[in-house]
């Protein structure tokens, strides 16, 4: 499987920032897919199986909770880990997304160093050797 990450957020700014943060963290990513809401993400998922989905919650058309529910209910997609990055911070919503089996919940605004440890376990060998001159 290629190391593709699907970033779902209605803000193009956030999609760009997340993409940059992932790259700067040293992960070797083959491709980034971007969707501006949940329905758009599902259309992309019909053709591609990404290694990881990073999604917002509050989006038009189909929100992040509905997207995660759809992914987890699809036998072909249910094993894709999902990470939520959102300003949405209500206890009810956090509990709901955690109950759906997301592997991480990061509240915006977030620091770049918060994201890498959450996504690293699900990118496996995609973690590039970014050690500059370090020992092996």
């Amino acid at each position: 499987m290629d190391t593709t990450i699907l970033i779902v957020d209605d803000s193009a700014t956030v999609r760009k920032v997340v993409r940059r943060v992932v790259k700067q963290a040293g992960f070797a990513i083959d491709d980034f897919l971007e969707a501006h809401h949940g329905r758009h993400a599902l259309e992309l998922l019909a053709d591609t199986t990404p290694r990881l989905i990073i999604t917002d919650i509050n989006m038009p058309e189909m929100n992040g909770i509905e997207l995660i529910e759809a992914v987890k209910n699809d036998p072909l997609l249910c094993s894709i880990p999902c990470v939520v990055i959102s300003t949405e911070g209500s206890r009810e919503v956090i509990d709901k997304v955690l109950s759906l089996g997301v592997v991480g919940f990061i509240q915006k605004p977030f620091r770049p160093e918060e994201l890498a440890p959450v996504i690293a376990p699900y990118l496996g060998m995609a973690m590039a050797v970014a050690d500059e001159g370090g020992d092996f």
Partner: peptide
Amino acid sequence: EERRYTLEI
């Protein structure tokens, strides 16, 4: 702690 707020778009 209780996180009782929700936001709109």
